[in-house]
């Protein structure tokens, strides 16, 4: 008996071939960098006990895990999804593109898990972090005010030459 032609695997194979032909598989080429770039500074209120957070702690906090420092629950705030600050922070700290971040939070919703940290308009980030205990956010270094304090990231101050967070 003649076996039926299996359209499904043929279609899959054809699409895969096209995808592989046009999609480079490997590390993404680094983008051209300007000579100097603004740093993205992680900030807390001046009275916050937080002075240093590791990259993994920041990653966990901004991907839905709860982080406590000295019994104080840290509450993260994000920039709006399409902002430079947000895409820079997510790309460096979370290792995710905007599309990947969107998928990540959508899938967490379906699992019944917590949603993304609340997003604030840029103008309010510093003001809110300064006002509310436990709040933590990030801003470009030229947006720093005396009302907030920058913390170290993985032991590195934002003034250090090897500080990892930059505005892309």
């Amino acid at each position: 008996m003649r076996r039926p032609i299996r359209i499904g695997p043929l279609l899959v194979g054809l699409l895969l071939s096209i995808a592989v032909a046009v999609e480079p598989i490997g590390p993404r080429a680094a983008e051209a960098e300007p000579a100097t770039k603004k740093r993205l500074v992680v900030i807390v209120g001046r009275d916050s006990p937080v002075t240093d957070l590791s990259r993994i702690e920041l990653n966990r906090m901004f991907t839905g895990s709860v982080v406590y420092v000295a019994k104080l629950r840290l509450v993260p705030f994000n920039f709006p999804p399409a902002s430079r600050e947000r895409t820079s922070f997510d790309g460096t700290m979370l290792g995710m593109s905007p599309a990947e971040v969107g998928r990540f939070w959508m899938d967490r919703k379906i699992r019944g898990q917590s949603g993304a940290p609340r997003s604030l308009p840029a103008a309010y980030v510093v003001k809110l972090v300064a006002r509310l205990p436990g709040a933590i956010g990030y801003v470009a270094e030229d947006q720093l005010t005396p009302a907030v304090r920058a913390i170290r990231v993985g032991g590195l101050a934002y003034t250090d030459a090897t500080y990892p967070l930059f505005l892309q």
Binding site: G26, P27, A30, G91, A130, E141, P146, A161
Partner: peptide, 29 residues
């Protein structure tokens, strides 16, 4: 050989200015 997106190489940065002096808290919020 593919790795997760590597952090971009750090460019040369100018020394950052010293922190500004404290001012009265009027955050407009």
């Amino acid at each position: 050989a593919a790795q997760p997106p590597a952090p971009l190489p750090q460019p040369a940065v100018a020394p950052s200015p010293s922190p500004p002096p404290p001012v009265a808290a009027d955050d407009g919020l």
